[in-house]
Computed example of a mutant assay.
Amino acid sequence: MSKFLLSLHVLAAIVAVGPVTVAASMFPPAARRVPVPVAVGGADGGGADAGDVRTVRLLHRICRVYAGLGIAVPVLGFATAASMGVLGDAWLIASVTLTAVAAGLLAAFVLPRQEELLEQLADGQPVERARTVRLAMFTGLFNLLWAAVTILMIVRPGSTTGA
């Protein structure tokens, strides 16, 4: 049962967290590339400018939807850890802590800032580079935390489970 749960946990991490890390990383430069003012309406349906905004909107939607799906990762992780009898191991507690920090960072800083930038773009306002740089910083921290969790899950320092 542990191998089955571990397989589901790893698959959920790849399928759910992977798209968030990639789309969130793509969002700031994509938002900077949107020319202002954004063309709205018109005979051509808004042209390239509207397409640029659609791209940024799609990246945000990917982040939001897959972040929701990402709830499966810690749920399956806890089930796997319980079946392996490692719930009290330091490497797992560190991983859970880093995962919680990453989720909090995504929910409190990345997604809301993406929404703010989308509103600006939809209103035809220019996006300040400083705002996209800060968003990129939070996104980078989010991705770094997930990289650290991945390393802890593979290396499992002090584990007696045979890593």
Rank of each mutant, 00 (worst) to 15 (best):
D49N: 11
D89Q: 10
L111D: 04
W91C: 12
P19W: 04
A147E: 04
R57C: 08
P28E: 08
R129C: 02
P74Y: 02
Q120D: 10
A107W: 02
F4E: 13
I154L: 12
A23T: 04
L87F: 06
L117T: 02
L152I: 04
T160L: 11
L76V: 04
P29V: 05
G18R: 12
A72C: 02
A67K: 12
A39R: 12
M1I: 12
G41H: 05
V127K: 11
E119P: 02
G140Y: 01
G85F: 11
A82G: 05
A12Y: 07
L11Y: 09
I71H: 01
P112D: 00
L106H: 00
G42R: 14
A72E: 03
R134A: 15
V53E: 07
A108K: 06
P157Y: 07
A82C: 11
A16W: 15
A148P: 00
R156G: 10
V73I: 10
T132S: 04
N143I: 00
A16Q: 13
E115A: 08
L141W: 08
V40S: 06
L105Y: 00
A136L: 09
L121N: 02
G45R: 08
G18V: 08
L144N: 01
M153I: 03
R129I: 03
S95H: 06
L76I: 02
V20S: 15
A43M: 14
I71C: 00
A23Y: 01
P19K: 08
G88W: 09
F4L: 14
E128C: 04
G77V: 02
S2L: 13
L141K: 01
R113F: 00
V53S: 09
G104Y: 03
L105R: 00
P74G: 06
G140L: 01
G51N: 13
A81S: 14
G124D: 04
G104I: 02
A16V: 10
L92E: 09
F138C: 04
R61C: 08
V15S: 13
A148N: 01
G85N: 09
E119M: 07
M153V: 02
V56Q: 12
F27Y: 10
G162L: 10
A147Q: 05
M26D: 07
L111P: 01
A31S: 07
N143S: 01
R33C: 10
L76T: 09
L76D: 04
R134N: 14
L152D: 06
S25G: 14
A163N: 15
L58M: 08
E115M: 01
A30S: 11
D49T: 11
D44K: 03
A102Y: 01
A24V: 07
F138T: 02
L6D: 12
V17T: 13
P126V: 03
L59N: 14
T150V: 12
P37M: 10
R129N: 04
S7I: 09
V20A: 14
R134K: 11
V101C: 03
T80C: 13
S25C: 10
